[in-house]
Amino acid sequence: MKWGNDLSTFVEKFRQYLKPGYYDEFDYHWTMTIDLDRCTGCEACVVACQAENNLPIVGEKRYAQNREIKWIRIERYWEGEYPDVKMGFIPMLCQHCDAAPCEIACPVFATYHNQDGLNTQIYNRCIGTRTCAVYCPYEVRYFNWFTYTWDEPLEQQLNPDVTVREKGVMEKCTFCIQRIRLAKDNAKDDDRRRVRDGEVVPACVQSCPTEAMAFGDSNDPEAKVSKMMKDPRGYTVLEELNTTPSIVYLKKAHAES
């Protein structure tokens, strides 16, 4: 009886793949906008993410080996030479691409697109082929090269809503799915079918001192992100790859002179 079930779901899935616009039919489409004109590169989001998602303290040695784990990082790019030198910051986190290159890579479905338009990573399904990370053009997937530990009693600050990943597992930004889950849970308690705009705030967005980031459901035309996305400064990184990211950056504006 299970076989039949599986087969029918498989056939159904396959039909869905064939159908154009498969990716548009999600319950939600969680989207983030980042205004680079507000972003100062202060890295508050980096620590917020580290605190919320139990990112390990990897230590100096492993940092030197380029094995840090930072689900959100600030990339910096210099332009020009002294004295007309300019610095551009861009926070880089999982783009939750609708056409994600990583999702085709995983042989065991540890990463897939869920009905919320999230590019998900199931740590416990991961067998560590690391293909997803190789395929990811944004390089926002991080691998647990070791089992990381916390110096006692630092482990007491670990967030119980997020698991601690073991060695050999890929991890990445989840848009703080535990917060999305909590918001949906609350919505259910209130007999609401949908989560209200602004009810879900990932840790990085929550912390941002310049309010450069916004987060919400872009399927909802009234949501703040939907409005932000329409800003003429909006663009997505590496647009030419057609990964259709869920993160829209607003380009830094220039001073009128």
Binding site: Y112, N114, Q115, L118, T120, I122, Y123, N124, R125, D161, V162, T163, I177, Q178, R181
Partner: peptide
């Protein structure tokens, strides 16, 4: 509803 989405039960 979404009962077989991995993220429903995994964290």
């Amino acid at each position: 509803e979404h009962g077989r989405d991995c993220w429903t039960c995994h964290k």
